[in-house]
Design a protein around this nucleic acid. Structure first.
Lengths: 198, 198
DNA sequence: GGGTACATGTAATCAGTTACATGATTTA
DNA sequence: TAAATCATGTAACTGATTACATGTACCC
């Protein structure tokens, strides 16, 4: 006779990515939500810092559900949308992550900065055009943040979101100052390089 | 008799990613280089803002070479390393990119901030621990940048690199101030949420 | 009732990451 | 000459993006 051993029926945790935690964390904050709800929530908050296309929000929750961290339900009525909720194990996973004070370092992934870095060989007018656009875009973003901040200030219980936004404000202010400086005091063009090969 | 029409033998440009431009731009700056050279160069400069694992630096140049933007040579001697150089078409592609003043917006991809955002339900001590680590890490990073800046100041022709680094300095200073503020004036914990489902 | 914007999802592709594996050089 | 570190690469996987496709609600 075969004795069935006790084993955990839960799938091995596929080490979770930042996007997993965004999904997990948002569901925790908001309670049961559809992918579209998440999309909306992201668009007006954490998406400014960590964005991804909406298609992810249909795939990633599925993964998390497979891992037992979420459960999926279907609406009964017409749309039959998928509604996800965090399970106890999901909360555990989230809290384990939050409880670990270590985090890999920030990366300012900024295509504009990347261009500046490589603009040594470009014409000064191009650098100026770049900086112009950047100042405009950062100003716009800054205004968005300020409006958002005002909204958050009214509501209780959103202090962590608001605080995170504050870093966004600081960043945008720094970026604006930076690009204005590029305009008023442009970097010097280096001596011409030797021509490329071939 | 078949008349061969004029056509461009160059492969269709697979729209280039930021990493493509990092490779292209570095090769332009440095002249012919091996993947390892690039790795070194990235580690002490643009990698702080836009990093990727070294394996990419063996794959991506291959892609660019297929697209006709680089040429690959082999060392004749023992190691037979692969040496890549930018072609005229590569320079064109790079300059087209630099010449376009538009750039998609920056994303501060910061796992630490992500944790803060979702720490509403965490214990205050956890937030404190997080902030402690962040202050330490940002201070360290700031020191790195300052050392790097001193080195760059000595050399001529690196003004654009140095300028880019300046944004890094501004960011790190802002981040340090921010996390110190989290320590001295922690965000308020929201009222307890309803328990998760299941 | 036709158009437009919002909403919902899937499939194919591709870039990026992880893991592995090994070779070459220096140093103890 | 063994150990350690630096250097070089590939393969498999999987997460992310792009593109497509269609459904539903609202507005004129």
């Amino acid at each position: 006779m075969v004795v069935s051993a006790t084993f955990t029926p839960v799938a091995r945790l596929p080490s979770l990515s930042p996007s997993s935690y965004v999904v997990l964390g948002l569901l925790r904050q908001r309670g049961p939500s559809t992918p579209y709800d998440l999309k909306q929530a992201i668009a007006s908050s954490i998406g400014y810092f960590w964005d991804f296309p909406h298609s992810q929000l249909y795939v990633e929750p599925g993964r998390l559900a497979d891992a037992g961290l979420l459960v999926e339900e279907r609406e009964a009525d017409g749309r039959r949308r998928r509604i996800f909720s965090v399970t106890d194990r999901g909360v555990e996973a989230l809290e384990a992550w939050l409880g670990d004070a270590n985090a890999s370092p920030a990366e300012i992934r900024d295509p504009g900065l990347l261009k500046l870095f490589f603009s040594g060989s470009a014409r000064p007018s191009e650098v100026k055009a770049l900086a112009d656009v950047q100042v405009r875009e950062h100003r716009k973003r800054l205004e968005d943040y300020e409006a958002l901040d005002t909204r958050l200030a009214d509501q209780a219980g959103l202090d962590h979101q608001r605080r995170t936004l504050r870093m966004g404000l600081l960043f945008e202010r720094a970026a604006m100052a930076f690009w204005e400086e590029v305009l008023t005091d442009p970097p010097e063009a280096p001596p011409r390089r030797r021509p490329a090969r071939r």
